[in-house]
Write a protein that binds this DNA or RNA. Sequence first.
DNA 1: TTGTGTTTTACGACCTCC
DNA 2: GGAGGTCGTAAAACACAA
Length: 223
Amino acid sequence: MNNQNVDDHNLLFISQMYPSVYTASIPQQAGGSKPARPRRRRKSKSVAVAEVGGEGGNGWFRKRKLSDEQVRMLEMSFGDEHKLESERKDRLAKELGLDPRQVAVWFQNRRARWKNKRLEDEYTRLKNAHENVVVEKCRLDSEVLHLKEQLHDAEREIQRLALRVEGVLSNSLISSSVSVEANQTTPFFGDYEVEVGDDGGGYENLFYSPEYIDGFEWMSPFM
DNA sequence: TTGTGTTTTACGACCTCC
DNA sequence: GGAGGTCGTAAAACACAA
């Protein structure tokens, strides 16, 4: 450990005991060999932090990073309760050798980080949920497409059968006009005889003839 | 070594609550 | 009105690639 490091070590120790003095005077983070990069800081209302000594007391000061132990204790306290009552703040400040204002600021920043983390987690959760919904929508779109194809096929089949029935009907009507003239009592539809019932019905029965449209009774609404 | 991005400490402005 | 909160931001500290 060279002289510079010894000085830094001592200053760090002093800083734990007298944080406000340290804040204004320690040249750099303990253990670091990099020179500090002082920048003009806007003036603080906090006398203890900003205006104590430090480069001739001209309003310059350097920020001090809290030690691992201090952060650990603060984290523990934050874990217990995110809000900081005055009494607890003073007690923590005393225990950690910090200015109560530093403890308050640390809690403010910690709450902000906690909130950001929570927002990030919530964003991730919603993003995953959204992705799942998109996948489900794709699946449903594909199912709709498939069902539409099935419907289209069914309609084409209906059309084909309707045309076939129409063809058979027109042929039958031509034949029947001839047969009716020849035989008034027994109308004749092509190869199919039609019984004329007492109620005068007959042609309509054609479509219910089992051997003619067996299995296509469901088509009647389309005719 | 230096430039740059990130994290941490600190503050000012503003708001709410008692 | 004062204490303590959030929010936005400055600046120091730090990490790291080039």
